[in-house]
Write a protein that binds this DNA or RNA. Sequence first.
DNA 1: ACGTTGACCTTCG
DNA 2: TCGAAGGCCAACG
Length: 101
Amino acid sequence: MQQDNLNERIWQVVAAIPQGRVATYGQVAALAGAPRHARYVGTVLKHLPAGSTLPWFRVLNAKGELSFPKDSSAYQRQREALEAEGVVFIAGRVNLATFGV
DNA sequence: ACGTTGACCTTCG
DNA sequence: TCGAAGGCCAACG
C-alpha cells in the first residue's frame, strides 16, 4: 500500500472519521500524508464516484462551515446528514473545538 | 509545456 | 471577531 494512490489514502482517512465527528480538509490531507494538499482533497471528493459510501459530508473547511453555497441543495443535504449524526450547527457553523477530530 | 482553476489554509490589519 | 491577501499544489484545457 503506501502512497501508490494518494487518492485511495484520502478515502481511507475520510472513511476513518467516526460518526458524529467532523474533520477539515487540512486535517484529512495531513492524515493522508500530504499537509499541503488540502485543496486536492476537495478535488478528490468532487471526483468521487456515485454510489460511494464514503462519508464525504463529514469533511468541512477550516472555518467549520460547509464548502457549498447555502442556497445549494448539496449544502442542506450535507447539513442534514451531519445533524442526523448529532453534529450541532450554530449560526451555520460547527464548533470544531467540540466535534473536531 | 504554460496558464488557469479549485468542495483550501494561514497570516495580517 | 470579521475581512482581505498571499501561499500551496495537483488537475485541466
